[in-house]
Structure formats: structure tokens, C-alpha cells
Design a protein around this nucleic acid. Structure first.
Ligand SMILES: [Zn+2]
Ligand SMILES: [Zn+2]
Lengths: 690, 690
DNA sequence: ATGCGGGCGCGCCCGCAT
DNA sequence: ATGCGGGCGCGCCCGCAT
């Protein structure tokens, strides 16, 4: 093997390439093919980050230096022939293949992956610009826009690699983005000039020119409904046999490069091997619009306690960082303009009611406390409140939430209506079809810091030693206003949970509603439940965000504060219709924590300023907490919508729906309130009787 | 399997098709493919002999009725839809495939064969004339001339069947003619318009448009010289591993249809499944020229003792049946015109000499006697005589044989010079290149009867219970006039023997001359021996005929009475040059026996008519027998020729040559002479002293 | 009808031997 | 150089499901 002794001349900018992690599997049996390819290709490029270390499992090389350093900024080290120009063309080509191998999202089927990459690299050998684009797209995980990477289209569109056939864009998207991708889950983005579906002579296989949508009929759990179209030989065996884990993205840990499956959902924040310092560099680089950096524009961002480039004086940013939460949670507690800087806030206090249909115990000492959270979660799940929409007022100014607040939309997805367009007439139901946020939105970069980093920096009051809750969420199922069955808790070891209409009660990561009985079940519920089918998948990402995948053939209707904000809607103003196959982020832990923290600080400030405020003389304890809890939950209805656009005006009228309590933000809320209570003994006793 | 219940509607002429022999292996796993093909093809033909009985090992259906009956002569049976027209096209196509399967020469690799046949049949489905030709060629084993059967040529000429590649004409010739055929052993015949070697757009795959020549470098014994080009995956395993037997044709026995390997050399007489009665039919059919039936034209055919259609009064046929032998063997014993009817017989008694260079013991009690033949063969092999050519006379009238006789050539191959052309000037050396007799000559039909049949009918004096000799031949090797080493005997279990220039002394079916030493070896012998190389193969067919295959890169020079007669030459007049790769029949047991018998009968007649004839007062006993023995032997020289066209005038001057005694005719000669001796005690005592 | 998965051969390509 | 054997992908084709 001639390349096993090749020097480690990977990174062109002189940054030494760290050695690979331990080599696992040696693949010799296709060496002849590779050598023969070496004799054929003549590709060369000087703008690629390559790694010539051959053989073994393709561990992910640290590419931070590449990301941080603009191309050509640093010359090659004089004594080390590290530039691509110095390679013979075959060596360059081999290095390209190896580098592309290093970014595989699954360690399964490496031989197939290698063949696929070799096939592609061979086709691109005379198109160095597209080879550059491929290297850039793969190495930077789509964080920079790249041009189309095209190969000739075959007559039936299928590419054959290692004896197996598949659509080329799907094959390569599997390699570098979604190992569990299925055949009909890709939709091309507008920037793509040669999308597969257009059936042009050339097909773009740039994985970042496609977005993932879940095809209808996909049996996520792989249990009850098998569909032959998903017995896909391209998927690795472990992926195909472990659907539960395969759908769960997992951030690569630098020390766990060889762990079983590394996946990346479409909107997963950049994984940790993009180091914190490189993320800092990204913030200052030209490819990052300054308005999208976390330091400048995130909603609910008070002055962070920690210093650093993202730190910003509260005073200077007060108008823009005016917290949604600060207006919302306490609008019924504080007098208007209590914060003074709220611009043009309509003080439309609508009638509202709190709803606790079930054994409505009022408070708990602790919402979440270590591993003893079971009861507190159980109890907190019953501390429900619901906005009662005015069923006769359908206009945009007659929103049904009790909270009429302005929204800071500087952090909203720019492709979505901003607060400046709030006057534009629109349907009250917000549609979500496809995958959001788009990989080309900058949302994926905002949270590019590891969760520990921003948690520590932004929320120093959170004890990082606090264990993650044993259960990351708690699910209640309702038909109308009636809770059906007990709550369903999902352990944190399960990164996703499926709620569907089937009958399997044996799994802890699957809540099958089909088996639940209700002697009072209405015909509407009966009918709607038939359409739950594959239901919904909720993914709990390591950064605390939650993604929803609609697996049913019918849409889901969501209540989500995060989506409200993302779509420029006022809090709890909109009903979010998530179409079949769509994959949508519905919760952001960071955003939630910011709001919680801001609300707490505002309350604390108010308490200090006016001890006789409503917080103290409120006739009900825990109400404020319930408001905050609302930020920590998700609600969704299967099949049937509600709100102004539908006959049903509240989710309580829908035939089958769920409420999902998210325990991680509740844990933080617990800590936060406890800290507040300690600081404000006046209210502490009332809220949390000892 | 839909066709397993299809009616047995094979033979179109109404002759009921006998049931297949026991079914061995059922092949279900490609039924889908077949069915799908059935949906595609639309071939139909009304001139094919087909058999719809499907499944199982493809036993050979009896096709006598087809052969005997001209197409269209008999209408279809009214109640039985037996004509091809009545088949649906797919049924017809399936039947064609099945029929072609029934003529496979090897039971190995039936799955491959089926795929190959299906591939071919598919390509011919729109060319019914070529499909007819294929069916005719295969069913009649090339005994009728057929047109080219073409398929499109691929770019590199190779056809792929069942994942394996090969030249198409080789593939199909293997199926139906030579299972052991190698890649470069085929030469096309002049009648072929699309031979493979011409690289036309279409390639003829008619197996009978090619003749087999042995490629140089072929290691027949598969022992000392391995050549990678013969690790041919197309060859069946048993064929590839048993070269000794693979080169040996074997006539199918009606009761042994499923015996291991059934092969057919290019000139093997039709096998026994063409039954005797069908052979009778053939004699009367239009496709059989009457002049070639055994009853009318065979040389050395006296009035057979048995009655039947081939029986013919001796008197009527005397001029034509005038035996070569009768003129030859006894020309020096009897006075000319002793038989009276010899027309225009030149009584040119040339000077002749008997040559017995080695321990020339004169006579034996028995030439061959059961299993105690060893000594008799040994002794008989030393009863050599040789014609001493007049070394100064080279003209055609100055032939070197002591026997100047006319030849009855009515049985000669019509494509060869007949006795009527004997006046035409010609070289004395007769060239043989390719395979003879040609499959298109009618020679192969002459001996279409099983050996037992014609032996019993023509030679009732032969005790059929006499065991076949343990050794079918005995080989002496000479350099010049010097015998080298002991005789080499070949057991009858070996159907062929190779005589080559190598050094393997471990085998009983391989006579390696390279290891033999001769202290008096001449330079000429030294040089010539270097060119023996792969030497010669002698095949002993079940009908007693002997074929020669020149494996050396240099020609062989043969003395063969059979070839003399076949080429229209006078007995022992010609030297037959057999070129490298050629495959030539050099001995016919039936012809030999006829001559022997005629000579004996003539002698017996002479003895009765003139007891004082030369037979009795001959000064040498056993000479007559040696003359007869000459008919039972072969002589050939490696590399160097002799005769008028060469410096060496007799084979005794050639540097390395062999004499092969054929024990089966010698056995008959023994019986014959014994019977003569019993009938003629006058001569008996003299020839065979008790 | 249409799509999908898959079987398989020819074309292309490669390594090897000579 | 040339031939040979063989690997493998696209085109073709097929069965099956819907
Ligand atoms: Zn593109
Ligand atoms: Zn031909």
C-alpha cells in the first residue's frame, strides 16, 4: 500500500493535522481498485483541506483551523510540502477521497461509502471547481454556500455503487448528512441549479442543496408498519435496525469519534468538533452576518452575566433586547410600562382564564429536583393553564391569548415575517412544511456553541453539576378536555419519542395511543384517532432544543412559543400547522432559559422596587410560575386544528391532543424560582410553602 | 411450473415421443426468468422437433422419427395438437429450449447451459430460419448442412452468460459438441459466412460451422504443462479435472443417458440412440444418399453373412465389392485374376521385401487370446514388415508399396479424389489439416449402427462374448530402424493415449518419449525429438475406430490404410501428413474387419479350389498373416516425413516414429485365422503350429 | 399505468502476463 | 504492445405492488 507511508500533509494552511484516533478496521481488499483509480485521475486543487493519512476507520479530523482561517491566508510551511500543489495528482485525489471519508456521518458500511466517494471523486476529477465545492460543503457542513456538484444523470436516474442502486443525491446526502435518509425525503433548495427532480442531464449531489422532508408513510419505529420501500439496502444495518436511535441526532464528541453512529439532523447546531474558538471566529468572519450572531440580536437576551465578545451592555441594547418574556409573563402582574422602555405596547388585557381540568393541585416545593423528579413532574403536569380564546373574535387584533405583547424579532428567521410586517393580514394558522430551520438560515450557527458553554456563560446561576433529568419529557394525552390514561415519561437516554396511534405498550420511547380506552370517547375522537397512524416524533437534542417530525399522514397543530417567535407571531397567538413529513424545531432551551431568567430578574427587580406589587398580593400562588411553565411545554393536536381558522377554538376542543412537559427547562425554572425565593422571602413562602 | 403439465406434444410428425428417462434434478430457481422470457418471445416454427416435457435432467429424447421422416410428410395427428403451429409462441419457445437442452454433451453445469440456450433462443426468436437451422444442426448432430446461426457481435467479441464470459461460438460448441473445448481450438469451415474470426457484426454460433483444432500449448494430460488460459470456468468441473477421459468420445448408450459425461468427437458416428431401425429408415430417407448406405458402397464389403436390407448378392456386386484386401493381401499369394472378376487389374508385381528389424519371431499360436494377450501382442508387435520403397522412383506409377492394387472407392469420401481420378497427378504426401471426416461428409452416417449390431450382422464368426482386449493398443517407439525402450501398452479402460516428448513415466495413458534414452541416438533424432513436444493423441472409439489428434507444433506423418482408402490412394501408397491441431480418423475397425474377412474367405476359397496354391507352398509361414496384420496397425513419424516428397524414403529412416498395434482387429484376425485353420487343416498347421 | 427493487449482460476498465 | 481474465456500472428488462 503505497499511501500508507505517505506523509501527513493534510491541512494546507500549515495548521498541523492532529493524528487520527486509533485505527479500527483496515480495508485492504479494494486497494487494487484504488490504485487503478490513482493511475487515472488527474485532479488537483489548492483550496482543499485534505488528509493523506490512509487506512483504518475514517476518524474525523479536526478541521477548526480550516474553518477559522480564510483560504490562502497562511502560506504553506516551507519545510513541509503541505500544499495540494505539491502533491502529485493521484496523491491529491487520494487525499480528497480520504478527506471526504473523514466526514462520513456513519461508520457503517465504510466500504460502500468509499466506493461511492471514489465514484464521485472520479467524476469530478476534471471539474476542480466542483471538487472544491464538494470539499467545502462537506468539511464545513454546509455552513458556507457552495455551488452545484454535478454528475451525469443515468437514464433511470439511479447510481450504482458497489452493486447497489440508488438516487445519487440521496446516496451522498446519506454519506455526509443523514445516514438514515430515505428515498423520497429530499427536496431541493432554490439555489440548486441541477436538482435531481428536474431530470436534467446532470444531477447535483451537493448534500446541502437539498433539505430533508420526511416522506409520508415512513414507519419511524420500524415496528408495526413495515413498508417495503424502506427496506433500503443503502442504510447501514445498525441504522436500519435501530430506528429509534437513528432518528436522534447526536453531537459528536471530540473524544468519541469512533462511537457507533454519528448523525446530524438538518437543523442540528454545529457539532462540538467545531470548537468554541472557531465558532468565535465564525462570528467575526465575513460569512456571518453580524445581525445573526448571538451577541447582537437574540431575543430574550438580557445582559449576560459572563463577559466576552457576545456580552453586551443591557442599557445599550434595551430597546432591542426588550424581552418577550418580560412583557408576557408579567404583563398581568405588573403595570404597563413597568419596565419603561417597552415601545408602543398595547395594554389590551384580555379576559383570560386558567384551566386545570384535572386534579389541580396548586404547587410543589420543587418542580424538578434531581432524580426525585417523578412526583414533581407528575404534579407539574397537572398544573395546566390554558388560554381561552375569544371564540367570536377572529381578527388579528383580537388574539386569543391573554398576553398581548410585542415581540423582539431580531432573532427571528429572516425568511419569516418579522414584527415589522405584523400589520400584514395573515391567516392565524401558521403553516410549516419541510424542514425548519433551513440549513441555510443562520439559526444553525447561532447555537453553534456547545450547550455547556452558553449555559455557563449565559446562565451562571445554573449549577452545571445538576444532573440532567432522568426523564426529559412528560406526555399527557387528552381527548377534548379529558385526560386519557396516565402520563407517559420519556427517559433521557431516549433521545426521541414517538407518539402514534398503534398498540405497542412495550417500549419506553414510544407512546402508543391506539391502546388507550375512553368510555366517554366521542365520535370525533374515534374518527380522529384513526388518523393518528404513525403520529409524531419528538426529538430531544443535546442542546435542549426539541424537534418535531410529523409522521402521520395528517398534519399536527402545535402550540409553541418558539414557533410563535420564529414566525413573528405574538406569544401563543398562532396555531402552527405542521404538515406531514415536516421536521420542525419547536423548542429552544436557550431561548426559553433567557425568557425565564429575564422574567425572574424582572420580578426580582419589581419585588425589590415595589414589595407590594401584585406578586405579593396575588390571590393565587403559583400562577406566575404556571405562566413560566407554559414556556416549558408543548401542546399539539392530531389531525384537527383549532383557533380562528377552525371550528374548534381551543385545543381543549380537539379530539386528540397531547401536552408535553419539558423537564430540562422546568429544572432550570425550579432552580431559578428557588433562587428568587431565597432572595425574596416575601414571596417565597407563598409560592413554595415549605 | 406451468409447463410441467404441458402435454407431451414433441414430435411434429405424429411419432409418439418416448417418455424421458428418470428425472434427476429439478430446477425451479430460474423459473421466473423463464416465465418472463415466455412473455417476450414470439418465435414459432413448424419444422422443429421439440419436446415440451420440462424439468429434470435433460435426457436425450429419441429423435429417430424426426430424422427418418421428411418434414411435412406426415400431417399432425388430428386429436393431438402436435404441430408447432398449435403451440402458443411461448410454449414453442420453451419447447425449443428444452429440445436444445436435450442435446447437451455434458450434464455438468446444466444451469449455465440453460441460460446460454435461453440467451441464444431469445436472439433467434425473430429469425425462425436460423432457429430451424439450430434445431436441425443440434438434433442431427451436424449430419445435415445447416446455415449460419448468428447473434450480434459484442465489442470485444465475448458473450456473457450467467456472469461468465466467453466467445459465443466456443460456448455453444461446448454445449453441443465438445464439452472440453478450449478457447482457441475452433477454426471455421468455408461454408460459414459469419465466422467469429472475421469480426463481422454478426457471429455465427453454429457448432457445425467450426472444426476443432487443438491449440498449441494445450496440456492434454493436465499434468506437466499448466497454462492459465485453460483454467476455463466454462468447462465443467469434471471435464476440467479429468482431461484423460474428456478427450475420449463415448457413444451414448440408450440405457446410460445419464451417465457422467457424454461427448462426441467431430467425427464420431451417430450415437446409439439413433436406433437401428431408425438407421434403417435413414437409409431409405431422402436425406441419405443411397450410395452411402452400408449396403451399397462400402469398400471391402463382401456379401454379408447376415440377411437384411444391407445384404447383397456377392455375384451382382462382385465388380464393385472387389476387395482391396482381396487384391492386396493375396496379390503375392494368388495368381492374378484368381478371382476372375477383377477389372483391369494391373498385375504389377513389384519387388518387395519384408522387414523385421527386431527379434523377428515368426509366428504365434494366437495373436490375441482373451486376457492372455500380453505375450501375443508383444510378439505380434515384433512381426513387423515394411514396404521398402524404391528410393529412386518417385512417380505415381512407381509407388513404394509392394502392393499395386486398385481400390474400390465407392465408400470413399466423395469430396476426396476417387479412383476415377487416380490418373490425376498429385503429390504423394497427402495433407490432412482440420477435422476429418467432416461432419458434413456422410461418413459419420455409415457407421451409425451400434458396433454390436454391425459386428453381429457382418461378422457372425466373431464371438460377441469374446472380451474386449485388456489393452487396446501396443506402441513401439523407434529412432530410425532401432526400437527404443519396451513397448507401451494402453489399457482399454483408457480411451485415449498421448505420446509426447515429455518425461512423465507415471501414467498408463501417456507414453512420454522424452525420458527414453538411446546411446546410439543420432543428431537427427536428437533434434527431432525436441519437437515432439505435446506429441499426439490417439483415441480409441467404442466402435473400434481410432482418431489421431496432432498436439505437437509439428506435423505427423502417418501410414494408414484407412487414410489411403479415404484419400483415394492405393494401399500404403501415400504418406499422410497430419498438421498440428488436426483431428483425423486413421483407422476403421469395420473396414478393417471387412478386409480381413474378405481376405480370409478368398483364401479359404482358394484353398478349396486350388489346394496347391501359394498359400500352401509358400516358403514362409506367417507372411500372409503379417500382411493382414499390417491392416491392424498404424505407423507415424514425428516431425519428419518420408516418401517421394522427402529425403527419407521409408519410415525406417525417420528420426523418431512409432508403430501402434491395434489389438481389437488383431483379436478378430486371430479368431478368423483360427477358424480358417480349422476349416483348412492344410494351412492351419503351417501357419499356427500347435 | 406507474413506480420500485432487483437481476444480469455488454461496455468499460483494469491488472497481469508475455 | 497485445491479449486475456475479470470487476463492475448503466442500460435493459422483469416481477411485483399499487
Ligand atoms: Zn445543486
Ligand atoms: Zn456459420
Amino acid at each position: 500500500m503505497s499511501n500508507s507511508s505517505a506523509p501527513n500533509t493534510a491541512s494546507q494552511n500549515g495548521t498541523p493535522t492532529p493524528p487520527h484516533h486509533q485505527l479500527h478496521h483496515l480495508h485492504h481488499h479494494h486497494q487494487q481498485t484504488i490504485n487503478s483509480i490513482l493511475n487515472q485521475v488527474g485532479y488537483s486543487s489548492n483550496s482543499l483541506s485534505i488528509n493523506t493519512q490512509a487506512g483504518g476507520t475514517y476518524a474525523q479530523p479536526v478541521s477548526a483551523g480550516v474553518l477559522a482561517s480564510p483560504a490562502g491566508q497562511n502560506g504553506p510551511a516551507p519545510s513541509n510540502p503541505s500544499t495540494a500543489e505539491r502533491y502529485s495528482s493521484s496523491e491529491t485525489w487520494t487525499s480528497v477521497v480520504h478527506s471526504l471519508m473523514c466526514h462520513l456521518q456513519s461508520s457503517d458500511n465504510e466500504q460502500f461509502a468509499k466506493r461511492a466517494i471514489e465514484s464521485l471523486a472520479k467524476k469530478l476529477k476534471d471539474k476542480p471547481d466542483e471538487m472544491d465545492a464538494l470539499m467545502n460543503a462537506v468539511q464545513k457542513k454546509g455552513q458556507v454556500q457552495t455551488k452545484c456538484i454535478t454528475i451525469p444523470r443515468t437514464l433511470d436516474g439511479r447510481l450504482q455503487v458497489a452493486g447497489r442502486k440508488g438516487f445519487p443525491h440521496v446516496i451522498y446526502a446519506r454519506l455526509w448528512r443523514w445516514p438514515d435518509l430515505h428515498k423520497n425525503e429530499l427536496k431541493h433548495l432554490p439555489i440548486c441549479l441541477y436538482p435531481f427532480d428536474l431530470k436534467l442531464d446532470n444531477v447535483c449531489v451537493n448534500p446541502y442543496h437539498y433539505q430533508r422532508v420526511v416522506s409520508p408513510g415512513f414507519d419511524l419505529a420500524g415496528l408495526t408498519l413495515s413498508n417495503r420501500s424502506y427496506n433500503n439496502s443503502f442504510m447501514s444495518h445498525s441504522s436500519a435496525s435501530a430506528n429509534t436511535s437513528q432518528m436522534s441526532p447526536q453531537i459528536d464528541q471530540a473524544n468519541e469519534l469512533n462511537s457507533s453512529i454519528k448523525m446530524e439532523p438538518v437543523t442540528t447546531p454545529a457539532s462540538s468538533h467545531i470548537q468554541a474558538n472557531s465558532a468565535q471566529s465564525i462570528q467575526n468572519s465575513s460569512i456571518m452576518p453580524a445581525s445573526h450572531t448571538s451577541s447582537s440580536s437574540n431575543a430574550c437576551t438580557p445582559a449576560p452575566a459572563s463577559s466576552g465578545p457576545i456580552q453586551q451592555p443591557l442599557g445599550n441594547n434595551a430597546p432591542n433586547s426588550q424581552s418577550y418574556l418580560s412583557q408576557m409573563s408579567f404583563s398581568n402582574l405588573f403595570i404597563p410600562n413597568s419596565l419603561g422602555q417597552l415601545p408602543n405596547q398595547p395594554s389590551t388585557n384580555t379576559n383570560h382564564q386558567y384551566f386545570a381540568p384535572l386534579n389541580s393541585t396548586t404547587s410543589n416545593q420543587s418542580l424538578i429536583s434531581g432524580s426525585n423528579q417523578h412526583n414533581s413532574i407528575l404534579n407539574s403536569s397537572q398544573l395546566l393553564f390554558n388560554s381561552s380564546p375569544n371564540e367570536t373574535s377572529l381578527g388579528r387584533n383580537q388574539n386569543t391569548s391573554e398576553l398581548q405583547l410585542n415581540i423582539l424579532n431580531s432573532g427571528s428567521n429572516s425568511s419569516l415575517p418579522s414584527v415589522n410586517q405584523v400589520q400584514t393580514p395573515r391567516r392565524l394558522t401558521q403553516d410549516w412544511q419541510g424542514s425548519y430551520p433551513s440549513p441555510y438560515s443562520n439559526a444553525s450557527l447561532i447555537n453553534s456553541q456547545p450547550v455547556e458553554v452558553w449555559l455557563h456563560e449565559e446562565f451562571p446561576e445554573i449549577d452545571l453539576n445538576t444532573p440532567i433529568p432522568d426523564y426529559w419529557c412528560t406526555i399527557n394525552y387528552y381527548e377534548g378536555d379529558l385526560q386519557i390514561a396516565d402520563i407517559f415519561k420519556v427517559r433521557s437516554v431516549y433521545q426521541s419519542v414517538v407518539i402514534d396511534g398503534f398498540f405497542d405498550s412495550s417500549r419506553e420511547d414510544r407512546f402508543c395511543l391506539g391502546a388507550l380506552t375512553n368510555v366517554q370517547r366521542t365520535n370525533a375522537s374515534e374518527k380522529a384517532r384513526l388518523h393518528i397512524s404513525k403520529g409524531v416524533q419528538l426529538e430531544n437534542l443535546p442542546d435542549g432544543s426539541v424537534y418535531v417530525r410529523c409522521l402521520s399522514e395528517y398534519s399536527l397543530f402545535f402550540e409553541s412559543y418558539y414557533l410563535d417567535r420564529e414566525s413573528g407571531r405574538e406569544p401563543f397567538d398562532a396555531v402552527h400547522k405542521i404538515y406531514p413529513g415536516s421536521y420542525v424545531k419547536v423548542f429552544s432551551l436557550k431561548e426559553c432559559l433567557r425568557c425565564l431568567k429575564l422574567a425572574a430578574s424582572v420580578e426580582q427587580q419589581n419585588n425589590q422596587q415595589s414589595p407590594n406589587s401584585m406578586l405579593n398580593n396575588a390571590n393565587s400562588t403559583g400562577i406566575n410560575v404556571d405562566d413560566l411553565r407554559r414556556l416549558c411545554r408543548l401542546r399539539f393536536s392530531f389531525v384537527k386544528g383549532w383557533g380562528p381558522d377552525y371550528p374548534r377554538k381551543t385545543i381543549l376542543e380537539t379530539p386528540c391532543w397531547c401536552e408535553v412537559q419539558l423537564n430540562r427547562p422546568l429544572q432550570f425554572l425550579d432552580q431559578l424560582i428557588n433562587s428568587l425565593s431565597l432572595n425574596n422571602p416575601n414571596s417565597n413562602a407563598a409560592i413554595y410553602p415549605d
